[in-house]
Design a protein around this nucleic acid. Sequence first.
DNA 1: TTGAAAGCGCTAACAT
DNA 2: ATGTTAGCGCTTTCAA
Lengths: 329, 329
Amino acid sequence: MSLSLEELALKADVSKTTVSLVLNGKSSIYRISKETENRILKIAKDHNYKPNSIARALRLNKSLTIGLIIPYLNRHFGRVAEVIEQNARELGYQIIIAVTQDCLNTEHDLIENLYERNVDGLILATMMNRDQFNDLSSKIKIPIVLVDRRIDGDDIAWVVSDDEQGTCELVSVMCQEGVTDIYFVGGIEKLSTSIDRLNGFKKALLDQGVECNQSKIQQIGYAVADGYEMTKNIIERFSKTPEAIFTSAITLLEGLLQYAKEHKPDLFSHTRVITYDDHPMLDYLQPPIFSVRQNAEEIAKKSFEIMHGILEKNRSFAQELIKPELILR
Amino acid sequence: MSLSLEELALKADVSKTTVSLVLNGKSSIYRISKETENRILKIAKDHNYKPNSIARALRLNKSLTIGLIIPYLNRHFGRVAEVIEQNARELGYQIIIAVTQDCLNTEHDLIENLYERNVDGLILATMMNRDQFNDLSSKIKIPIVLVDRRIDGDDIAWVVSDDEQGTCELVSVMCQEGVTDIYFVGGIEKLSTSIDRLNGFKKALLDQGVECNQSKIQQIGYAVADGYEMTKNIIERFSKTPEAIFTSAITLLEGLLQYAKEHKPDLFSHTRVITYDDHPMLDYLQPPIFSVRQNAEEIAKKSFEIMHGILEKNRSFAQELIKPELILR
DNA sequence: TTGAAAGCGCTAACAT
DNA sequence: ATGTTAGCGCTTTCAA
């Protein structure tokens, strides 16, 4: 422990109050004399005084800490976390990250855990539905901003990619190239990301006058193994090799690639593969895989911005739809 | 804020002391009557009492918080962070992650920042050298465990991959296939990862009786752009296309791939490429790229284990070399 | 078997 | 222009 306010006060031969006021930049408001102020500042500097943030947090009931709860720390979420952390740090906040592995119970535990730890706010990539969220909100009296996965409601703050639009554009490109036989490899059905991506998929088919066959739509989960499974189903259940497959996340694409490598090495000679999410390595895969790149940086920036606005500027909730980018290789 | 110890005490009609003792499992030591104990426990449960962790941290001078400072939250470090977080959580600790972007000044700021925030310990993927680290240690009176990048010294705790061995094995495989003309694409020269990987590279050549030419060794940095630059140098400076290139990190491989795609599409018909670090997408690249997969999970587990041992079991520092895995495709 | 009270380091209302 | 003091919620020594 470095030296305390009290010890500083002793050295400067003033009271704790004076030191506190000076150090918090309230000298002028309280008419502390320039002489005293400078003396205190100098002593503080000389002794490299650092206020004890825990004492401060206790006193102010404000920890300057934000909890960030996300399913994984993989590429997309890792980048989101990284940027949120940087933005937060610049404004004096620190981020506590916890990882749910896409398990709802874990999410609940983590929220409770971080709440008990007195975080000032929570940024969540949630699996909760509206009811569960309402339940939570009534118990928890700190601001919540949803990131990446939204919940419908006018009073809920969120920042997500425009999944529907992104998917629609990507799938439309396929249709315009003449593809009419396209499969949807989806994730956890009830998540907004899944709903929006599926809606985008259907909208593209509708717009382009392509028939949408329910049997070509699968939604199991976002794990690599799920992508493998769904690809397997497509290949094994249908006699005809599909013209195109859309995977709605990079992990699902990985599963597809794995299945193809093991059981269907010629998949790509008959089938176009396109995916939501991007990855730099896709640039080097043959054949080219079109993708939709989410703007992780912007998502991160906005979500902390909204949180900060609520905490310090009396702003209320806000909602932001971030445009993803089509990558046609 | 939920209800406090004092309010609980009031409801249970006992003193704060009694409640505190019961809730901290010290009933028997202090001979609190079973009856009182149960009454208090019931009331605490009924009211869903949660101790205020900040007050506790202030009183105990222990925040149950560990700072984790790493260069990025990309694949490898993201996974390390994820696993450290999970391990920590199970033992009641929370992790505060901060990202340096491989900038030494940022690292210093972050350490100071987290230290002021009263973390109980620091886990660092550091850029510091021995002197800088000694400087730091003298100022900072909390345990430090280095992860992924070590600093020589008997009294420093670290957990790193066995980079030298991993690289040596991988490069030896190349040599055994008859390659004698192999280039080293390296990262930040002074880091232990770079030193160890380069040593492994040289050792393999020596073991296999292959001449090691200094001009074939470059070390700029770990960014994708650095990999691009070094590949460019190799291709442009030498008239002969190399037989093999070893990139000492996945980011450098990405840079290489980018350069090849743009300026040397036939690179792979003449040149074998191998890399430190692994990535699932490598399974689907043509031609196959041999790699060394670090055991991020084990690295994470051990590093928190050491930290926990120091904090709670009076253990002293420890050092662990984690075996990476060769992936020959 | 339980309670009173001090104190962790800080802020801020109130006093001087 | 500066000091006194209470108190944030908790743990723990000492007393009863």
